[in-house]
């Protein structure tokens, strides 16, 4: 999934004098206030932080309230979806006119019917609304499916993404990954092995969805995968 990155930030937190005896608590509180909000300086939404205070010295800010500035180094996990990035999320509602998705458990996204490529047909199957691909019967999107889609825009205040399923390499992740395997000219036994690897990777996606830190590995894998996909198409 694109749009996630880890940044090293050098920060100065100004601590109110009343918090002087609980500095580390005050710093964590200050950093926590950044969470789940879009921050223009970081150009993204802070999802997690890991803070390190290298020096015990702080600079006192002269004034009526002698705030003191504590320098710190923080690793920030940032989510900054930009137009034309591919991101992933879970379908929470599906109607003929729109698909509603939740990304990483906190950001809502919508794909309107103009952004759903003509390949997908809206159907009611066993009382459940689904989008089924006309050319690949197995390619199904329903409530609960993890899908990969293209970012069109982001409302920074509400963290609302509007997305698109127009590009061919978007849709149900499960199906896309399967298709990738089938396309690769490999023997059945290696495919089996791959499948195992694939399911492990899927789990990794799931943890990403929960908003957990490390995901550099899967990021790489996906990058290469995407290249493959684009070579194909």
């Amino acid at each position: 999934m694109e749009g996630l990155r880890v940044s090293d930030a050098n920060l100065i937190v100004y601590v109110h004098p009343s918090k002087a005896n609980r500095v580390s608590q005050a710093i964590l509180r200050e950093l926590s206030s950044l969470l789940f909000k879009f921050n223009e300086i970081f150009d993204g939404v802070v999802l997690a932080y890991d803070v390190d205070i290298p020096s015990k010295d702080a600079k006192i800010l002269p004034g009526i309230h002698p705030y003191f500035g504590v320098r710190l180094k923080a690793k920030l996990l940032l989510f900054s979806p930009k137009p034309n990035m591919l991101i992933e999320g879970k379908v929470v509602k599906l109607a003929q006119e729109s698909i509603h998705i939740v990304v990483l458990g906190f950001s809502s996204a919508i794909i309107t019917d103009e952004e759903i490529r003509g390949e997908f047909k809206y159907k009611i199957k066993h009382g459940e609304a689904v989008f089924v691909s006309r050319s690949h019967k197995r390619h199904v999107i329903k409530v609960g499916t993890m899908i990969r889609f293209l970012v069109k825009s982001l409302d920074e205040e509400i963290l609302h993404i509007s997305g698109s399923l127009n590009p061919p390499h978007t849709g149900s992740i499960l199906w896309l990954d399967k298709k990738l395997e089938d396309a690769s000219p490999s023997s059945r036994s290696t495919k089996k092995r791959r499948e195992n690897g694939e399911s492990r990777e899927m789990q990794e996606h799931d943890t990403v969805d929960g908003g957990v830190f490390s995901l550099d590995n899967s990021h790489h894998i996906k990058k290469s995968k995407k290249r493959k996909i684009s070579e194909e198409s």
Partner: peptide, 11 residues
């Protein structure tokens, strides 16, 4: 509900 979920503007 549709309005609220369709775009950040109407939430």
């Amino acid at each position: 509900l549709s309005l609220a979920a369709s775009s950040g503007n109407y939430l």
